[in-house]
């Protein structure tokens, strides 16, 4: 354990922890753009600079491990001036189009610009201009909005193990590139989208469906494989506009292509909307009462004539515990047979 002092507060933290983590532990907020709790430190955005007694210059708190006796100052006129300069530099190379940006309201850069009240920019100059040309169906890559924090590169390598993207070129011309700058072709897990602090990476299917205003978030469980990832539905006008996952979930915020981008079937025009009864080989729409009465009559008749074991029920691994419980109870108690199964085997 290391005894340290942060902004005059004494605290004891585990060795190996970074200064940033230690500060957050005791509720001291340090701004950061490139740091992400699930990824190895990068130290590129320079917003989390702090002063440490005995160090010749400010250091990034996200990369500096604590050591016993450290005295840390997280905010001072110098530190705030540096943060402001860094933010201003980032914004001098960032499109000013928050009004049409998909991430407005959920953008860390926008939040920081607001916090520091940055409207004028001392450094206005040339901005990077790129043609948007990635034809993949899932992920919109707007590299003009990219602040090169490297989170996407790290998550793709460290978490997903895919290494589909990396830094290319140098200096001001640096950009995140795919191999040979082709269209992104990866597992499309969208982990990069989830960690992007700006609007550089967004879901293509999100576009123009709804940002923050009026969007309701509901936590639930993904309905694809058996992993059971916790997801958050973003809903506007009874329509799912995004699926995300929070960092503090058991799946640590990570999802796969199906979980993150495979939600549009819900609003598919193919959905069944009315009970249907087949007559002479054709389906016709019916009311619920008509349909349920018909089912009840037919099942009663078969049960009466052929016995309950002439009836069987197949339930689904897609349905909830409650539905499955009710279904088998229905087959066993209301119909009177144990002919009930589901697709676990298939």
């Amino acid at each position: 354990m290391a005894k340290i002092k942060i902004d005059g507060i004494d605290t004891t933290v585990a060795e190996g922890m970074t200064v940033l983590e230690a500060a957050r532990n005791i509720g001291v907020r340090i701004p950061a753009l490139c740091q992400h709790p699930k990824l190895t430190p990068f130290g590129g955005c320079r917003l989390c600079l702090v002063e440490i007694k005995g160090f010749p210059r400010p250091v990034t708190s996200c990369t500096t491990p604590v050591s016993d006796g450290m005295e840390i100052v997280t905010t001072s006129p110098t530190i705030e001036r540096l943060r402001r300069t860094v933010l201003e530099l980032i914004l001098s190379d960032h499109p000013n189009d928050c009004m049409i940006c998909e991430q407005a309201g959920a953008c860390t850069l926008q939040e920081l610009a607001y916090e520091y009240g940055l409207r004028e920019n001392r450094f206005a100059g040339e901005r990077r201009v790129y043609e948007k040309k990635d034809g993949n169906p899932f992920i919109e890559r707007d590299l003009e909005k990219c602040i090169l924090c490297g989170r996407c590169v790290k998550v793709c390598d460290e978490v997903q193990g895919v290494e589909a993207i990396d830094f290319g070129y140098r200096g001001f011309d640096s950009k995140i590139v795919t191999s040979f700058e082709d269209d992104l072709n990866c597992e499309f897990c969208g982990q990069c989208v989830s960690v992007c602090p700006t609007g550089a990476l967004t879901g293509k299917q999100w576009a123009k469906h709804g940002r923050q205003m009026g969007v309701k978030e509901t936590d639930s469980i993904c309905s694809y494989c058996g992993t059971g990832c916790t997801i958050t539905y973003h809903v506007k006008n009874n329509d799912i506009v995004r699926v995300t996952s929070k960092e503090d979930t058991l799946n640590e915020g990570w999802l796969c292509v199906k979980g993150r981008f495979g939600y549009k079937f819900v609003s598919s025009p193919d959905r069944l909307k009315h009970p249907l009864i087949k007559k002479d080989g054709e389906f016709r729409e019916a009311t619920w009462d008509e349909a349920l009465d018909l089912i009840a009559d037919r099942l009663k008749k078969i049960k009466r004539e052929d016995g309950p074991d002439a009836i069987a029920g197949l339930s689904s691994a897609r349905c909830t515990n409650e539905e499955n419980y009710a279904f088998q109870k229905f087959i066993r108690a209301a119909v009177g047979t144990n002919n009930v199964d589901h697709c676990a085997r298939l």
Partner: peptide, 29 residues
């Protein structure tokens, strides 16, 4: 007879995942 049902985001309940964890499913739409 075909009955129109609802999918996961349209209902409340629980799923039990592969590690025997009973988790809450919530209606979103």
């Amino acid at each position: 007879v075909v009955l129109p049902a609802s999918c996961a985001p349209e209902k409340d309940g629980t799923f039990s995942n592969t590690e025997r964890r009973v988790q809450r499913v919530r209606k979103a739409v």
